[in-house]
Design a protein around this nucleic acid. Sequence first.
DNA 1: CATGAATGAGAATTCATTCAT
DNA 2: GATGAATGAATTCTCATTCAT
Lengths: 217, 217, 217, 217
Amino acid sequence: MTVPETTETRRGTRPDKRELILDAAIRVFARNGYHGSRISDIAREAGIAYGLVYHYYKNKEEILRSIFEQRWSGFLEALEGIAAEETPAQERLLSVAALILNAYRARPEWVKVLVIEIQRSARFAEPGQLDAFAQLFDVVGRIVRDGQERGELRRDIDANIACTIFVGGLELAITSLVLGVAEADEGDDGGRAYYMRVARTVLDVFLHGIGEGERGE
Amino acid sequence: MTVPETTETRRGTRPDKRELILDAAIRVFARNGYHGSRISDIAREAGIAYGLVYHYYKNKEEILRSIFEQRWSGFLEALEGIAAEETPAQERLLSVAALILNAYRARPEWVKVLVIEIQRSARFAEPGQLDAFAQLFDVVGRIVRDGQERGELRRDIDANIACTIFVGGLELAITSLVLGVAEADEGDDGGRAYYMRVARTVLDVFLHGIGEGERGE
Amino acid sequence: MTVPETTETRRGTRPDKRELILDAAIRVFARNGYHGSRISDIAREAGIAYGLVYHYYKNKEEILRSIFEQRWSGFLEALEGIAAEETPAQERLLSVAALILNAYRARPEWVKVLVIEIQRSARFAEPGQLDAFAQLFDVVGRIVRDGQERGELRRDIDANIACTIFVGGLELAITSLVLGVAEADEGDDGGRAYYMRVARTVLDVFLHGIGEGERGE
Amino acid sequence: MTVPETTETRRGTRPDKRELILDAAIRVFARNGYHGSRISDIAREAGIAYGLVYHYYKNKEEILRSIFEQRWSGFLEALEGIAAEETPAQERLLSVAALILNAYRARPEWVKVLVIEIQRSARFAEPGQLDAFAQLFDVVGRIVRDGQERGELRRDIDANIACTIFVGGLELAITSLVLGVAEADEGDDGGRAYYMRVARTVLDVFLHGIGEGERGE
DNA sequence: CATGAATGAGAATTCATTCAT
DNA sequence: GATGAATGAATTCTCATTCAT
C-alpha cells in the first residue's frame, strides 16, 4: 500500500546508476515533457556525464519505457493487493484513494509522466496487455462492482462511470494541489495528514454525495 | 452552452487559412504534443505548403498561444454564463458537466491541448491572469460555494476539493471514453444522448453519492 | 562504350542537386572511404549547406546505395552491349578492356567506390540479384566461353579463371596507375592513347602470353 | 615461401595477448574497414575486456600500423627469397603465384586489410619507404625483367604492365573465390591442391595466352 | 499568396580514450 | 594485468526559420 520514496537504495548501499538516471529522467520529463527534454538535461539532473546515459540505456525512448515498466508495475501490484482484501468496498476504496494520493504526494513527477507521456505513445500499448489506464480502471471497477453485488454500493449507477469519477476526482484533486491552486503545507508531516483528509473527503463525496444541503447542518 | 463544431466558418464562407492552420495544429499537438510536432506536420495536416504557415504565424509558439486565446476564451465565456444563471446550483452544475462533456465529445483534441500543453509552458501564465485550470476551478468553485450558502449543497465538504472531484470525474469520464475503455456508439446522434446520460450520472454521484447499497434496490 | 564525363548536365541546364551531391559523395568516399567520410565533407565538396543533403537523401547509407544503383547499372548496360556484339571474342574483349580502362581514367573515384565500399556492405547483395562482381564476371565469362565454343580461344583453360585473370589484370593495371606506380602523362589527350595501349597490351598478354622469349626477338 | 597459419605461437606456447588482439583486429578490419570498426568490436572478437586493448596498444591507429609491419614484412621477405632464386623466371613466377594464392587462402583477411586499408592511409607511405603495392610490383617486376633479359620472356611487352596483369589476375582469382563466385571445395586438403591448379592456370595464361583456339584441341 | 529549396543551430548518438577498482 | 564504468569530443540527423521564385 506504499510506494518506495527513494529507489536508489533498493540494490544496497551503492547508488545504482540505472536507477539514478531513471529518477532524474522522471523529474526532467515531468518538467518539460518527453520531447522537450534533452539527454543532457537528464545527465545534468543525475549529476553524471553526458555519454554515460548511453552506457545504461540504448536511447531516449528506452528510458521512457523503463520508467513505465518499473514504476507502473509496482504501483499496480499495490493496487491489486488492496482489491484482493476481504474488507468492505468502502474501506478498500479509501485505501486506493490514500495510495494514489500518497503516490502523488511523494512523487508527483511519477504520476505526471506515467499519465501524460505514456498515454501519448501508442508504442507501449502492445496488443494483449491493457494500457495503464485500462488497468487502473479495471482494478477500481472490480472493487466497485464487488461492492454493488454485496449491496454496499448503489446498483443504479454504472460501475464504469462511477469508477472514473472516483479516479478522476482523485487525479484532479492532486493536480490542483500540484499546480498550486490549493495549499498543502500544514504541519511538518510533509502533508501526509492533509492528504489523508483529502482522501476521506473524496470518499465521502463519492459515497454520500454533496447534495441535499440540509445535511450540511 | 455550446461550442462551435467548426471554426472555419466564423469569418465568413471562405475557409480562413489562419483557422485552417489552427485546427490542424490542434489535432497534431493533441497527437504528438507541442515539442513532438513539426511545422511540416501541421502543414501536411492542413493540406498546405509548409512555408505558408509562416505567412500567418510568426513561429510555432505563436500558434500555441493563438490556440489558447481563441479556444479557451470562448469556453470560459460559456462557463461564466452558466455560473451567472439564477438557477439552483445543481442545475448549473449539470450545465457545466454537459458543456465540458460536449466540448470533449466534439473536440477532444482541444481539451487535450489546452489541458496538457498550456499548463506545461509557464509562458502563458502571465502575471495577473490566472492560468486555465485555476480559471476553471474558480468558476466551478463559485457555483459550489454559492450552493453551499443557499443550503443546496452540504457545507461540511471543502468546496475546493468538491469541485476538483467534480471536474476530475468529468475529465476522466471522457478520457476513458476517448481511450476506448468505454463505448459511446449509441444511435446516430454522434453520442450526444450518451454523453448527456454520463453528465447526469456524474452529477448524481456528486450529489447523492454511491454509498448505502440498500438505495440501489 | 563511353561513360559520361559529367552528370550534372543530364537533366538540362539546371544543375540537378541530387546529382551534384552524388558526384561530391563519390569523390569524398573515394578519398576517405565510406566510414571515413562525414556528411559535412560531402556538403562542402558539393558547395551546399549541410542540411540540404538531408533534403535529398534520407541518410548516409542511402547516398551509397544511390551511387551504386545509378553508376553500376549504366556501366553494366555498356558491358552487356559489348557482349551482345557479333564480332570475334578477341575484339569484344578489347572493347571491354577499353571500356573499363576508360571508366577508370575518366572517373577513377567511381570505380574505387563501386569496388571497395559496396563489396563491403552485404546490404547491397540482396537475394535474387547477383552482386556487382558476379555480374561483371558473368558478362566477361560469357564472352570467353563464346570464344571457346567458336574455336577462337583455347579450350583447355578454365573459363572462370581466365576471365578473372583478364579482369584482374585490367583492375590492377589501373590501380597501379592510380596509385602512381606508373605514369600516364603522355601528350595532351588526357591519357586516352596511353590507356588504349595498355588495353592492347593486356589483351596481347591474355591472348598470346608473355612466355617463350624467342618470340620477343 | 609459406606464410604461418597461426601467429599466436610465434612467441612461445602462451597465446600472446598482443598477437591475439592483432589477429582479432585483422578479422574485424577486413569485415568493416578501419573506420567502421570499433575498439569494442576488436575486444569482443578477441574475447577480452576492451579496456585491455589499451594496455597493449596506444590507440587504434597503432593497431593498424602493427598489422602492416608484422604481416607485410614477413610476406615481403618470402617474396624477396623467391626473386633471389637462380631458377628460370617461369618457375619463380609460379612460386610467387603459389605464395600469394596460399596467403589468400589461409588468411584472406590479411590481404584485404593490407591492400585496402593501408593503401588508403597515406600515413604509412613514409618518405623513403615504398608503399606495399610498389614493393610487390617491384619484386615481381624484377623477375619479369630478369626473364626478359635472359630471353625467357617476350621483350615486346612492357614489364610494368605485364607484372600488374600477373598480380591482378592472381588477386581477382582469389577475390572471386572469396566472394563465392567459384568453389574451392575439393578434398579435405583445405583447397591447397585446387589453389595450386589455379596458380598453374594463371601462369599458363600469363605465359602462353588464351588466344588461337586451335591449340585448345 | 504559395511553394518548397536552402540554411544552420541544436539535439541525439557514437565511440575513442581515460581511470578507478 | 584485467575490467568495464566514466568522460566528452566528434558526428549524424532533425527541424524551425528564411528566402528566392
